[in-house]
Design a binder for these strands. Structure first.
Lengths: 229, 229
DNA sequence: CGACGGATTGATCGTGCTCAAATCATGTGG
DNA sequence: CCACATGATTTGAGCACGATCAATCCGTCG
């Protein structure tokens, strides 16, 4: 559902994809070249784009959150990243999307035509640099995540996840996770039961507190850091 | 050991990092702007650059091969990629290397100053585009590898590895792997014993033949593809 | 030929998965 | 406002895959 069509100057939270502190990436682009940005909303679980679909737009999360994943033919799923408010996603150097993106909860995004970005990159060096820097930020996250998936234990993965989310969406001590246990498991390469057991143990160890399964308070970040290899 | 210092036009194999078929990336850069390329050689297991070191050069493998990895404090290692002749590595958008690179065997590389590339990118749009495209190619490989590490079985991982190496270094049916079983394990998130057992099973199933542990002939690529989810 | 590092193979162990049931949270309609 | 339905989460029991520990085996290079 289309809601607006503006090119207003953007002032958006400042955390990059995966917590990369690239100071407001979208602004570095759209603000730059007076590009037309549009807002669009997706309902929970709605697909934003599919794997191998032509990449037509670049997106920024305004509210809600997005999961980006690959599927095997038998349904096994690997989530590559979660995108939270302020994060840019869907940027491709090639012509198609290499993962599927879905709204985790009801989500509003800002989007610009990919073609207009590339055009701007042909003119302004800063835009070209921004595109590269954003892709490099995603690569950094992927490299860290390969280490997690290939070599870390279940508890180390969950501790790492909590610290990542704490860094990226901690409002006032309280963390409101938008995603379910299955999403977390598919992000960490674990089953939802293993995620749940790890969280339960951290709870009984006093490392974190719950108020509802997705409202989490970290009570001992240092212990969590020690648990994350 | 420094061996030459030239800026000769490069004509090098055409497979990108991780098999991305970006038609000779280094040439698209050095050939472009008349940059000075230097050759350098490393002995087996010699470090080329370390994690968190300032990124001063961009490299292309001429002969040999390179592993790029992250370490945990207790020695667990995750290899993110192997670089084979023709592949470009060590390109960073930020100021430091995020993984360590080592020669797997005696290896010769061509290198150019990172700074001179960035300078060229400020002038030529094609160079800027090349830098982005190369980083995006690495990202694609990392995304595929996250799926492998997070969700595939040991046999699926090994089958995938064999097909990747077949694609990237198959001369005439015979594949000469430069790396040991431990390196393969650290790339696939497995132990060296599990890799060895999977290869032995593929051998007794007639999917592949050995002539020495690292000389492998694929006898049934289709079966291998079926084994790779 | 001998020595050494790499690879294979075997036996056992343990982490995380699977299958299953109980509990909790959330929203809906009476 | 409460009863219920539904989906998410937790918890339990048993199992399996891949890890670990250990003993050969093999190939390569002196």
């Amino acid at each position: 559902m289309l809601t607006q069509s503006i090119s207003a100057p953007l002032t958006i939270p400042k955390v990059g994809p995966a917590g990369t502190s690239v100071p407001d990436q979208f602004h570095g682009i759209t603000g730059q070249a007076g590009l037309v940005a549009t807002e669009f909303s997706y309902r929970k679980d709605e697909e934003i784009y599919g794997e191998d679909e032509p990449s037509e737009y670049v997106y920024q999360v305004i509210s809600g959150s997005v999961r980006s994943y690959k599927l095997l033919s038998d349904g096994r799923r690997q989530i590559g990243a979660f995108y939270l408010p302020g994060d840019v996603f869907g940027l491709e150097s090639g012509s198609v999307h290499r993962l599927t993106a879905e709204a985790v909860v009801d989500t509003t995004v800002r989007l610009v035509k990919r073609h207009s970005l590339e055009q701007a990159a042909g003119i302004t060096v800063q835009v070209a640099r921004s595109l590269w820097t954003m892709t490099a930020g995603e690569l950094r996250h992927a490299e860290d995540h390969m280490l997690l998936l290939g070599r870390k234990s279940a508890m180390e993965r969950v501790a790492n996840f909590l610290l990542e989310m704490d860094r990226r969406l901690a409002a006032t001590g309280m963390m409101a996770l938008p995603m379910c246990r299955r999403d977390i498991g598919d992000y960490l390469g674990l089953t939802l039961e293993t995620v749940s057991r790890a969280l339960s143990q951290l709870h009984s160890d006093g490392v974190l507190g719950f108020s509802g399964a997705r409202q989490i308070v970290l009570r001992n970040r240092q212990r969590l850091r020690n648990l994350d290899a």
